[in-house]
Write a protein that binds this DNA or RNA. Structure first.
Lengths: 336, 336
DNA sequence: AACCGATGTGTTGACGCAAACATGTCTAGA
DNA sequence: TCTAGACATGTTTGCGTCAACACATCGGTT
């Protein structure tokens, strides 16, 4: 900065003003400074700026297993939204999810230079983690009863959509392959499926649990394929649905003629499954964008030292459940 | 820090020493300081530390489209490896790939507090981007002729493995669905496929190009399914292979009885495709780990002001091509 | 002529930390 | 006893930036 100042024949402060787009700088001076900046390839030092201003313009994201489809898409959306708003994204992976590891990750982020944190841990265990106050936090894809704002897909609505679709096709009831019981989202989908069946007076068959992977879907699918009563299956995500489809094929049960299958997520590949999968689309883009906006609002609010009433208002906004949509493809039909 | 120092009855410097794990602190003093830290919830300020030391203990990762399978897995591995080594990962997404956007992303990272950058852009256009010097850079999944170390899967070996497997099953030749021509990896796979065919004296059929998505694989697959000469297809990634499989099914061509298909990547779902996909496995974990280690070595080298000879040595290490493995499943068989 | 506010620019200091150096204390060996 | 060296700890200083304030200039009032 000093070099730029010298080359432009001004003080460091003026360089700072130009760098920050302040208006009270003469047009000619500004041009001279910008010229000098370009010439010297000057880049403001983020660390010094952060030290001075107390703002890092960076948010931390705690994630478990980037490899699952939803997490990845959400992270992508978060990164894009944050970048558009001038914030960078710091990744903090957690290798296994328990109270200790999550708390550790949070603490490590506290040391790192971030203005706020997005928690992308869908596990119930999160409910037991006491997060230190002082750092704005937004929770994604998890329960709605935390001390922090929660952004999530409307899991209940999505699962109802899927179940009702199958019932309306004429199936007597709907079987369910659920996600792991440790997952909040899996629980919500399972409960909503069950509630929908009860509302319609249908039998509630035994649930099968998977772990979100397509291999676990195959295992569940084999069990269902062996039961001739099964004519309709709601699978808690597309990856497991892929495994279910394969299990049905290997057991000679035609989809959708013998068995109908509905997934959840609408991953890009679902349209190319065999047969193309009817599924519930969730908008990961919306989730990501809303998370960032909510977090930034929190950060901003703290910035302005809100009265306690305002904090209260922020924390208790109704959680914004992002609606889903049923995407009809070729894996569902009425019973024979 | 001052508060901690006062509470522990020591100087700020001693607190600093404890915080940084220096050894020259009395065990009792250390305990007292750590106690005070816990009591006050002290977290060192990363910005100040970075400003003072010039080290950020953070690496930047430039990515395009987190949504593709390989990128995601690699990022996961990078984040895990970096965290294990005490570095955090800053994400810098690029919305579209051209000289300008990549240079911009790099420049933005320069402002941000990072010690080095991993470039995860597989496009040829990268070859034309002049990266400013001074910041260590490692390029992943791209060409081997940059000014920076390159870490990549052995694309050539992988494509040969796939092609030879099909030829050895007795197919007269092998068709190919390539990735986009803008991609370095796609080019290498296509060239290696072609070379393998030539080496064996086989016809080289017209290439079909996709864009890595399963939908584009379906489009290519429809064209191939219509041609009765086609008995063996090497598809440049698993996602497109999924689309190819569906196209073959819809056109009544049995896999593997009528047509054999080999993919590339071995994504988790490939084992649950219908039929389970024979594919080339690349180790994204290795790629990620090696990228981080190479970058950290570069960072460390600059730290110690190496003589020019040493820089030279680093930059011209033979690129470490990570080997692949052919995973045999049910989508390949000899011709009828 | 004296005064005003608006505008553009320079000077000073502090953010939190750690490197460099200074000081004090203890131990071992001459 | 004296000294060298190892070790623990304290003091000073500055990293790059920007807020706060000081100052200088100018057009327009009284």
């Amino acid at each position: 900065m000093a070099d730029v100042a010298q080359l432009a024949g001004v003080s460091g402060q003026t360089v700072s003003r130009v760098a920050n787009g302040r208006q009270n700088v003469d047009a000619l001076t500004r041009a001279r400074v910008q010229d000098a900046m370009r010439q010297l390839g000057y880049r403001p030092n983020g660390a010094a700026r952060a030290l001075r201003s107390g703002e890092f313009r960076s948010i931390g994201v705690i994630v478990f297993e980037l490899s699952t489809f939803g997490t990845t898409r959400t992270l992508d959306a978060i990164a894009t939204a944050a970048t558009a708003r001038g914030y960078s994204v710091k990744l903090m992976p957690v290798l296994s999810v328990n109270r200790q590891t999550v708390a550790d990750a949070f603490s490590r982020l506290g040391e790192q230079a971030v203005d706020g944190v997005i928690m992308m841990i869908e596990a119930h265990v999160l409910e037991e983690v006491r997060l230190p106050v002082g750092l704005p936090v937004v929770v994604v894809h998890a329960g709605a009863h935390y001390d922090h704002p929660v952004i999530d897909t409307d899991q209940t609505q999505g699962a109802r959509l899927a179940t009702e679709h199958l019932l309306e096709l004429g199936h007597r009831t709907v079987w369910h392959v659920a996600g792991p019981s440790s997952s909040f989202a899996a629980d919500q989908r399972r409960r909503s499926w069950e509630q929908t069946l009860r509302d319609r007076g249908c039998d509630v068959p035994q649930v099968l649990f998977g772990d979100w992977t397509s291999a676990s879907g195959y295992d569940a699918g084999r069990r269902l394929a062996a039961d001739p009563d099964v004519t309709a299956i709601f699978v808690a995500n597309d990856q497991m649905a892929l495994g279910v489809l394969r299990a049905l094929h290997t057991h000679g049960r035609a989809v959708p003629d013998d068995v109908s299958v509905v997934g959840f997520d609408d991953m890009e590949e679902a349209a190319q499954f065999w047969p193309p999968l009817t599924t519930v689309r969730q908008s990961f883009t919306d989730i990501g964008r809303r998370s960032v906006d909510t977090l930034l609002a929190e950060i901003h609010a703290i910035d302005h030292q809100p009265p306690l009433a305002e904090i209260h208002a922020i924390d208790h906004q109704p959680p914004l459940a992002v609606p889903t949509a049923l995407i009809l493809r070729a894996s569902t039909a009425g019973p024979r």
